[in-house]
Amino acid sequence: MPKLLLGVQKKMIKELSVQIDTIGTEMEAIISSDREMARKFELLLSIKCIGNQAALHLMVFTEGFTKFKNSRQFASYCGVAPFPNQSGTSLKGRPRISQLANKKMKSLLDMCAKSSIRHNLEIREYYQRRVAMGKNKMSTINIIRNKLLSRVFAVIHRGTPYVNLYGHIT
C-alpha cells in the first residue's frame, strides 16, 4: 500500500511541476510582450537577492506598481510594517505586525531578506551589528524586509537599476 501511495504522489508532483513550469513560461512571455513591464522586471532583478519569483509577485501584487504609492503602503499590505500596540493612554505594548496581511508576499520577502543576509555584505554587517547590540533577530529581519521594499520602490520610481554604493566605499 505505501508503494502505491508513493507512486501516486510522485506522479502528482511530476504533473504539478510541469504545470508550474508552463505557468512560469507564460508569465515570462506576458512580461516580455509588454515593454514597460519588461523594463520594471529588469529593474527589480537589478536588486541583489530579488529573484524571478519575488519580482513576479511584486509585479502582480502591486499591479505593475500602480496600486501603492510608496514602499510603506506596500509594507503595510504585506504585514511587515509594525503598528503601535496600545489601548487607551495607559496600556502600551511593543509595536506589532498586523495578522491581516498578504502572507505569500510576506514569506517571499522573508526569503529575500534571509538571502540578502547571506549574500549581501552590507546587509550581513547591518544584521550582525544589530544582533550584537542585543536586538531581536526577527525584528532585524523585518527591518531588512522593509529595506528591500524601499529599494524596490526607489528603483521603480527612479527608473534606473540599483547601484550598490556600499561596494564603492573604501
Rank of each mutant, 00 (worst) to 15 (best):
V8T: 08
N164Q: 11
K114F: 04
T170P: 13
A29D: 12
K3S: 15
E42C: 11
Q99K: 15
S98W: 08
I143W: 00
V18F: 09
L43N: 08
E26D: 09
V163E: 10
L4K: 14
I169G: 03
S17H: 10
L100M: 13
K69V: 13
I169Y: 13
T170R: 13
N85V: 01
A113V: 02
L58S: 08
K40V: 02
V8P: 03
A81N: 12
N136T: 06
K114M: 13
L108F: 06
G93E: 00
V80P: 12
L43A: 08
L91Q: 14
L108D: 02
G7L: 10
E63Q: 14
I23M: 04
K135G: 05
H57A: 10
T170C: 10
T25C: 04
L148S: 05
K103F: 07
N164V: 00
S116H: 06
V80E: 09
G134H: 11
S90I: 08
Y126A: 14
Y77R: 13
N102Y: 05
G134W: 07
A54V: 06
I143V: 13
F153K: 12
L5Y: 08
K106R: 15
K11S: 15
S71H: 15
F68D: 11
L149Q: 08
M105P: 00
M138G: 10
F61T: 04
E26K: 14
N52K: 15
L44F: 05
